[in-house]
Structure formats: C-alpha cells, structure tokens
Design a protein around this nucleic acid. Structure first.
Length: 849
RNA sequence: GCCCAAGUGGCGGAAUGGUAGACGCGGUGGAUUCAAAAUCCACUUCUGUAACAGGAGUGCCGGUUCGAGUCCGGCCUUGGGUACCA
C-alpha cells in the first residue's frame, strides 16, 4: 500500500495546475464571474499562520466557485509602502526599497507551496512605480474634481528629533527614540473630503446585507450622525474684538436650562486670540498641547479647565451669565469646538463642574418627587420618559427624544439657532512626512502657489539615493529631487516632499487587480466585468478605516470616471476572520526578567535542559513573545494540506484559532486515514457486492449537503466536522465496490477546497476524469436526505424527561397522544391533566403540568 | 474615556429560541504486537449511585418565554478599533 507522501504529491499537483493554467483569470462573458479577494499582506518578510489561515479561507471559496462553474478572479499583491521599511533602514541599514522587494520575493516563495489558487500574473506591489504612478493620476483627478483640499491639522511633534511621529511612535506621551515629551503641532496637510460623503456612506451601509452586522454598526457609530441645535452665545463686554459670539453645537438642547458653563477647545480661535496677552492662559494652552493627538489619550487625560474670565449671556435670560472655560477634553475637530456644559446630565461635565465648583442644575428627573439636587449625573436612555422640572418646551413628562425635537423647534421659532445634522467623521488627512510612500504630485511655486504636476510627468518616482542616519524625511534634505520647474509658469519651483498615507494605496488595489498593468488606473471593460469583489476576506482590525476609505475611494473613482456606477460599494460580501494564537512559554533570567521560548524548543512543559516553563494562555502570535509557529516547518513536516486542514478545522473562521502541535498532528493522521481508505478501495475487487450500499450513499448525500452549506456560509469548521463523520462511516462500511468508489470520489471532491493536493491524488487514483479542481461540484439528492422516523425529546416543564420515536410525518395530535401516554409523563401528571402541551413537529414535545 | 465583539467540560469548540457539550485534542480501558510505534474499538461535563434514579450546569445579577448558551436590562473579564501601525 502506497504511503501518503505530501511533499511528493503537493509538488506534482501544483505543477499540474500551473501547466493547465487553471487559475489564470481571463474575461469570459459566457460564464458568471466571481471575484474573491483576501486583504493583501504587508511584506514583513515571513508568512505566519495568520496569513495561512486568511489565504486558505479565500482559497476554499475560490476553489468551490471554480467547481460550481464560475470564472474566478483570485489575485495577490503587496501592501508595500509604510514605516517598517524605514525603521529597518534606520535599525540595520540598507534601503527600504531593497528591504521591501527582498521581503516580497521571500514571502512569495513561502506562499507558493500552500497551493493557493492565485492568478500570479496579476501580482503587483504598491511600491511599484507602475502602481503608484496611477495613484498619482487618481490624486490629480480627485483634486480637479474638488475631492481634495488643504487645511491645518495637528500632528505629534518630537521637539528633540524635530520630526513628526506616528501615534505608534508615541509611547506614554514620549517620542520612541528621543524619549522627549511629545507635543501637538499644526501643519498644513492634504485632505480627502470624505466628510462631504458622510451622509451617503452612512445611508449606504443599510444595503450591505452581506457584511457582518458588527462592521456596519462600527462604521455607523464612527460616522456618527447626530441631530442637534447649533446656536451662539453672545459674549459680554469683556471679550476680545471679533469674538462677540461663541458658536456651540449640542445634541441635548432640552438641557439648556441646566447650562452652567461654556467650554471651548484649547485650539478654538477665541483661545488663540486670548493667548496673545494672557501669559497664564497661554501656559495652560501649552500644557493642553502636551501629549499625543490620539482620541484615547485626549479623552483619558485628567480633565483640566481654565477660566478665561469672559462670560456669555444665556439665550433665554440675558441677565444670566455663564463663565467661559478652556477645557482640554473638547476637540476642535468635532462640532464647533465649543460646548455648553450641563453637569446634571453629562458625566464629564459633572466631573468638571465638581472640580471647578460650578452649579449643577437638573432639568429632568426620574420622578416628580425626586430631589432636584442631583449627586451624580443623571443620564437615562433617550427613549425613557422622564419628568422635566426645568423644561421649556413640550410636555412635563416626555422622553429625551421628544424633548430634544421640541426644544429644537422652540429655539428655531425664537430665532435662537437652527436644528442641524452633524457627523463625527472627519476629513481624511493623507499627508505623511516620510520617504517610503507615494509622492504627492504637486509643486509649490512662489508665483503660482500650489500647482498640480502634469500627468505626462507621472510617475513622480522616489529618488533612490537617500539616507536614514538622521531623523526626519530624507526627501526634505535631498539635494536635487525637490527642484523642478513649475508646471504652470516654468520657473524654478519646489516639489511637495510629503508622501501619501499607506491607506491610500490599499483603498483602490482591488480595482487595480482588474487590469493590473494598464497605463490608466483602470480599464473600463475589465472593471465592468470583474467588479465588484464578490467576497472580501480580512481581519476585523480593518472594520473601520480601511473599509471606509475604500468605500469613499470607490465613490471618488466613479465620479472621476475610473469605476462604473455599480461599483460605488466595491465589496458585495465581507468576512472578518479571527487570529491564529498560541500559548506563550516563559522563563525568567537571573534578574527576573521574562525570557520567551519558541514552541519547538518546549516539550511537555519543559525546555530541552529540563527547565520548567511557565505557560500563559494563548495570545496572538507575535515575534516578541516567541509564540510563533513557522508555516514552513509545518509544511516540511506534514505538508500544506495538513496546515490548511488544521487552520480551518478547530474554530469558527470569525474567531481566533489556537495552534496546537497535537491538533496539527491529528489533522495529519486524518489525511493519512483518508489516503489509506482510498488505497483500500482502489485495491478492491471491482465486482464486489457488499452490504449497506444504501446507508453509505445516504451518508454521502448528507455529507454533500452539509459540506456545501458549510462552505457557502463560512462554516468551515462545521464542514470539516461533517467530513470527519463521513470518513468514519467510510472506514466502517461493508458496502460494495461501486458504492464505495462513488463515495470516495465524492469525499475527495468535498475535501478539495481545503486539501486540494490530496484530493487530486485520490481523484487520479480512482480514475476520475481531468482535474478534481475543475470537476463539477457534487449535488445532493434531496430524496436521500430525509429520514423516515424521528426521535423527539419529551420535556416536562422545560426539563427533558424522556423521548419517543415516531414516523416523520405523524400529525401533531397523534404525537401529543403518544407523548402523553409515556411513562414519564404519566408519572409527572399523577392522574391529573396537563395545563398545556406544546408539540413542535420534528423538534420537541413540552408538557406543562 | 468612547465604539464593537467574545466568554460553554481538563483543552479547542458544536448547538434556525426546542435533547447543552457535535467534531477534534487530551485522558482511561481494551484489541493487535514478543514488546513498542502505528492502527482499530469503547468510555470520558460535574455531582451522585454497586448500577439505575436523581441533582447541578453555558462569566456574574436580574427579566421575557411553555422552553434561554441563544432574546432584553445591568455588571465583570478579555480582545479589536480609536482617525499617522498595517
């Protein structure tokens, strides 16, 4: 009996697929197309199990769709710009370009043995000038269409290295290299006007039926549509010139009578005006500018305020004056950068008012007799009815929602502000002060200002001769690269040295795959045929930014004529998969610091020298914790099919999967078992008439049904559990050759999306025609799926107390009669009559006594 | 801080509001073997019993329902995101 030898089998069948070109996607109007895409990888240099899992899932879908007669596009590329390449250049020398392309070559080499159904002829990297040149063309078209503008934004500034830092490079408020305290600093930057599309991006979420509900919800909350009142407080005489009004936005205008102060952002124009001649106030604003720019950092910082001494008039009672504070928790980016504080109904305002001894005035209470002096912020759900003791519009008893609406109407009728809809979503700043990114194709001319580069000059290529020995953007200090004639007047001018955010690169690569080497960003016919992506697969960590930016880009590309109208929502279906995790093995060094150990160095909880390791629960595989398993090692030991089978088998795809050595071993044993069954059947006497053909074929049709449902619904682990069950049936069957031969061929086909190499091998050994990969998917016979009788559990008061077996089509009342006659029910009734009997046909009987 | 998830045996996990623990790992026992590996078979939530019976049980507290792992409200813990990591 020939043994299962994955290394030999896998190389052979990969060569056969290549030779036939089965994965090369060619436009074919006679077949339904199917575009399956996994989020492309960053070329870190080594593939990890997370990649194996992600690409195997996509591969299962792609291969399944091939066998159901689809023309499949399944491409692969590299998200190749970004900080790690520059960090590597700084840390170990070398050049980001060399580092990146070497990594790509390594990873491609590691990925190919997995036997993925990828059309490698469409491969590209976002750092290819051929790609980013087209991205520059898109930028110019977007600019012309008014989708891009320039404005100020604050960045993390390292005052020692004199550079901009990414959020990731700010650790505990300090620069990661210099250790200096980071500050916020304003820079003029380029922005995509994504906020103009907030309404549309929000409304269109509803149509994304094949996206996970959680992703739609996260995007909805991120866009953050709110209805509120915008109005102005007038300042009293002591305010500076041109600041006689402070415009505020509130989502709770019903609490206006509970206002006890006005808060403005440290970046508010009024704050900036006051800074000029108030040193103490300027010092406070400087203090607020310390620290990084992230929302988490800003919002978890201790609440600080500064009384400006200015007061404003309450719109309902102009004799009532409120103090104006500068407060560090108010963001200039949201609303108007100014709020009124109502401490009685906002936790943050309550904290602030307590700290600065400001009045706390309730405007509604849980009941009419509740104490109006609240001791903590009272913030009920907006749908809850409450008693308004300080209301000014609508009923005394009303919900927050009703009160807000009537308050807006009331204020509008009195000429105090307007009801407005606002969004939390901000414009997308795309400028980065870094080298390894797509250059922004504009020129700064003393006479003409900011001038777009001419399209015929694209791509604006990155210069190679740069160094990373000093902090900052090497493009800024390059001797010649910046110098260029103004595209408008021809005089000497300077290139923009900022490059684009890497999210720009990943916001349209899916469209580029439809015509990856064209000399325009896309080609109409190709985009029309292949778009949209039918199934997109990637990590939940991209739920908001990448996916929202891509949705915006698809709209912008449609407006500028680069995508058809039908592609404004580019991903028909989305699946977010979990991570691959592993236990962490840890010992301590002589100074008590943790030392981590690779799984391959640990056996039965001990190192090779016998030292016991401390085992901490599974966490995402990471190099620093050394809890990584190298896919190459697994492939060398067991083959790609085993790795593929295991990453799919143990957990639902959307959840994390824990890699265990024993699990991989079990997968390998199972594939051996299947291989041995196939060999046994191939060696059977062809005229053998056994017993139990019908049982085997029924099990086979059930397997076809269950696996098909599993694959189509991303229930890969469930599909694999069914395949284990069906394999066990095949192991024990005494059926004749014909039935067993049919069953093993079907088993090979059902396994083919997960373990394509083994499937091809069995298919060939059983005399199948052509390739298993392209053979039509088996169909389940409905008649073989139904059983004649069913066993129903009998519950008494919801607890299982017995069961009956009845014909599947028995009417309800007869089932009820039989159930009542059972010993368990008779005992429970004890001569009485049941209160109620619930019969759910085919499911359960519940007797209430 | 805010937004979104997840939490079920010794472990990974299964379960359209309808028998909680499919399938796999590990463990125990057995078959095979001179012996082992490999392979095959059986058992394996806890408690309880000689064995049945019985009782408890899906992070915690409460609710809806004939019936809740599943739905609702409030917590706890862990993970993801938080606009310059990708």
């Amino acid at each position: 009996m020939a043994a299962y030898t994955p290394s030999e089998i896998e190389a052979r069948w990969q060569a056969a697929w290549d030779k036939e070109g089965v994965f090369t996607a060619v436009r074919d109007e006679t077949k339904p197309k199917y575009y399956v895409l996994e989020m492309f990888p960053y070329p870190s240099g080594r593939i990890h199990m997370g990649h194996v899992r992600n690409y195997t899932m996509g591969d299962v879908i792609a291969r399944y769709k091939i066998s159901t007669g689809h023309n499949v596009l399944h491409p692969m590329g590299w998200d190749a710009f970004g900080m790690p390449a520059e960090n590597a250049a700084m840390a170990i020398g070398g050049h980001p370009k060399t580092w990146t392309y070497d990594n790509i070559a390594d990873m491609r080499g590691q990925m190919k043995p997995l036997g993925l159904s990828i059309d490698w002829s469409r491969e590209f990297a976002t750092c290819d000038p051929e790609y980013y040149g087209q991205q520059q063309a898109l930028f110019l078209d977007f600019l012309e269409a008014g989708l891009i503008h320039r404005k100020n934004a604050s960045v993390n500034w390292d005052p020692e290295d004199m550079t901009v830092l990414a959020n990731e490079q700010v650790i505990d408020g300090k620069g990661w290299r210099s250790g200096a305290e980071v500050e916020k600093r304003d820079l003029t930057q380029w922005f995509f006007k994504i906020s103009d599309y907030a309404d549309e991006l929000n409304a269109a979420l509803e149509g994304l039926n094949n996206w996970p509900a959680k992703v739609r919800l996260m995007q909805e909350n991120w866009i953050g549509e709110s209805r509120g009142l915008q109005f102005a407080f007038s300042t009293t005489a002591d305010a500076p010139k041109d600041h006689d009004r402070i415009e505020v936005y509130t989502t709770r205008p019903d609490t206006l009578n509970g206002a006890s102060f006005v808060g403005i952002s440290p970046d508010h124009p009024l704050a900036k005006a006051l800074e000029a001649d108030n040193a103490e106030l300027a010092a406070f604003c400087a203090e607020c500018r310390k620290g990084g720019t992230t929302a988490a950092e800003v919002e978890t910082a201790e609440k600080m305020g500064f009384n400006t001494g200015i007061t404003v008039r309450h719109p309902f009672d102009t004799d009532h004056h409120l103090p104006v504070y500068i407060a560090n928790f108010i963001l200039m980016d949201y609303g108007t950068g100014a709020i009124f504080g109502c401490p009685a109904h906002d936790v943050r305002d309550f904290e602030f008012a307590t700290k600065y001894e400001l009045p706390i005035i309730s405007t509604f209470l849980p009941s009419e007799d509740a104490d109006p002096k609240v001791t903590e912020a009272y913030v009920p759900m907006k749908t809850e009815k409450v008693f308004y003791n300080g209301g000014f519009a609508g009923e005394q008893w009303q919900t927050g929602e009703q009160a807000i609406a009537t308050a807006i109407d009331f204020c509008e009728s009195k000429g105090i502000g307007q009801g407005v809809t606002k969004y939390r979503l901000r414009d997308w700043g795309l400028s980065r002060q870094r080298y390894w990114g797509c250059p922004i194709p504009v020129v700064h001319c003393d006479d003409c200002g900011v001038v777009p580069e001419k399209k015929e000059n694209l791509p604006i290529e990155l210069p190679f001769d740069v160094t990373f020995d000093i902090p900052g953007n090497p493009l800024d200090r390059h001797p010649t690269w910046r110098n260029t004639p103004c595209p408008s007047c021809g005089k000497a001018a300077l290139r923009e040295t900022d490059t684009m955010d890497t999210f720009v690169d990943s916001s349209w690569y899916f469209a580029r795959f439809t015509s990856p080497h064209a000399d325009t960003p896309t080609v109409k016919e190709d985009a029309e045929y292949w778009m949209n992506v039918d199934q997109y697969i990637g990590g939940i960590e991209h739920a908001i930014l990448h996916l929202l930016y891509s949705r915006f880009f698809a709209r912008a590309m449609q407006i500028t004529g680069h995508l058809p109208e039908g592609a404004i929502e580019p991903f028909n279906a989305l699946f977010t998969q979990g991570m691959v995790t592993h236990e962490i093995y840890e010992t301590k060094d002589e100074r008590g610091r943790p030392v981590y150990h690779l799984p391959e160095d640990v056996k039965d909880g001990k190192l090779t020298d016998g030292t016991e390791v401390q085992i901490t629960p599974s966490a995402k595989m990471s190099k620093s914790k050394k809890n990584v398993v190298d896919p190459l090692g697994i492939i060398a030991n067991y083959g790609a099919d085993t790795a593929r089978w295991f990453v799919l088998s143990d957990s639902p795809p959307e959840r994390d999967v824990e890699w265990t050595a024993s699990g991989a071993e079990a997968a390998y044993k199972h594939l051996n078992r299947v291989h041995n069954i196939s060999t046994r059947i191939a060696e059977m006497d062809k005229d053998n008439k056994g017993t139990g053909d019908d049982d085997l074929l029924r099990a086979m049709h059930k397997a076809i049904h269950d696996v098909t449902v599993g694959v189509e619904s991303f229930g890969f682990n469930a599909a694999i559990a069914k395949l284990y069950g069906f394999t066990a049936v095949m192991q024990k069957t005494k059926a004749g050759y014909a039935a067993q031969h049919e069953a093993i061929k079907v088993l090979a086909q059902l396994m083919a999306p997960m373990t394509p190499h083994l499937a091809e091998d069995i298919w060939a050994n059983q005399g199948g025609t052509g390739l298993a990969t392209t053979a039509p998917w088996p169909k389940a016979d409905e008649k073989m799926l139904v059983d004649d009788s069913v066993t129903l559990p009998i519950q008494i008061n919801g607890k299982r107390r017995g069961e009956i077996t009845v014909p599947a089509d028995m009417p309800k009342d007869e089932v009820e009669k039989l159930a009542l006659a059972t010993q368990a029910v008779q005992k429970a009734l004890d001569g009485g009559t049941p209160k109620k009997v619930i019969v759910v046909p085919g499911r359960i009987v519940n007797v209430v006594v």
